[in-house]
Computed example of a mutant assay.
Amino acid sequence: MFQADIIEQCKQNNRKAQLQLYNQYCDGMYIVAKRFLKDASDAEDVVQEAFIKAFSKLHQYQAEVTFGAWLKRIVVNKSIDLLKSKKQQLVELDEVHLKVVETPQDDKWLVEDAITLNDVKQAISNLPDKYQYVVMLYLIEGYDHQEISEILSISEVASRTQLSRGKAKLQDLLTLKQNGTRY
């Protein structure tokens, strides 16, 4: 059955089609939620809530993006909402003091060969939340600054600044790790 057919059946409350769509996307969406939420049960809850919302709002899905991308956006927003509700508030930066100059080296995300993927994940998890969310959305989830600004309710300038500062902090953490010091 084609994706569009399944979605159309889901719009008509076909439970079998909903289960099929759920089974197709649940593992991937759990991984996305787990990147934001450390607790497995919180990630599971977010995925369930995201599917409930997706199925209830499916009539709004216009197929401008893939269903997976649309659902992923819901999962990311639900994850951030949960973090906010747990008082892990994002800190808004005062835009008056922000001025970021983009340079070609800003696009380099290179680390030493000795640094493992687990080292990078650990370093990202040790970033302050305001940097961690932007770094994860940009580097791992692949969102651009306009999308990040919409998701986090910050300006594009704040997104760029937080990414730049987060990247610098991440590189510092990874340099410390390489030199034998723990984060």
Rank of each mutant, 00 (worst) to 15 (best):
Y138W: 02
Y30H: 04
L19E: 14
Y25F: 14
I7Q: 03
S125A: 15
Q88T: 03
I52Q: 02
I74R: 02
D42M: 04
R160P: 00
E112D: 13
V101N: 15
F2L: 12
S125K: 13
Q20A: 13
R182D: 15
Q171K: 13
V135E: 00
M29E: 08
V96P: 00
K86E: 12
V101T: 15
P128S: 02
E141F: 14
T181R: 11
H145G: 02
E141I: 09
L19M: 12
L173M: 12
E112Q: 03
Q18M: 14
G166W: 10
K84V: 08
F36I: 09
T175A: 15
L82Q: 10
V157Q: 09
N179K: 13
V134S: 02
E95Y: 01
I74T: 04
E150F: 07
I80H: 09
Q171M: 07
Y25W: 10
V76S: 05
E102P: 06
L163E: 09
I74H: 01
S149G: 05
Y61C: 06
Q171V: 10
D45I: 04
S155Y: 03
L21E: 01
Q132S: 04
K16C: 10
A168F: 11
C10P: 03
E92C: 00
S56A: 04
Q48R: 08
Q9G: 08
R35M: 04
N77W: 00
E64P: 00
Q171F: 09
K78W: 01
I151W: 03
I6M: 09
C26D: 04
E95P: 01
T181E: 12
F36T: 00
T103I: 14
D107H: 03
V75Y: 12
S159H: 07
L58S: 01
Y131P: 00
L139V: 10
A50S: 10
K53M: 12
R35W: 00
L174W: 06
Q178G: 07
K177R: 13
K130F: 01
S153D: 06
I80Y: 08
D106N: 12
Y22R: 11
D144E: 14
E49K: 10
K72S: 00
L110C: 11
H97Q: 14
V134Y: 03
K38L: 09
N179I: 14
I148P: 02
D172K: 11
K108W: 03
S125E: 13
L176Y: 08
G166D: 10
E141K: 03
R35F: 01
N77R: 06
S155N: 03
F67P: 04
Q62T: 10
Q62D: 15
I151Y: 06
R160L: 09
E8D: 15
L90S: 08
V135D: 05
D45G: 13
L83Q: 11
K167P: 05
K72A: 01
Q9S: 14
K34H: 02
Y183I: 11
T161H: 15
K84S: 06
L19W: 04
G28A: 03
K87L: 13
S164R: 14
G68F: 08
F51C: 02
E156T: 13
I6T: 06
L19F: 12
H59C: 13
E147H: 08
V96Y: 06
K177V: 05
V101D: 15
V111L: 09
R182H: 15
Q122T: 15
S85R: 14
L37G: 01
V91A: 04
L163F: 12
I154K: 02
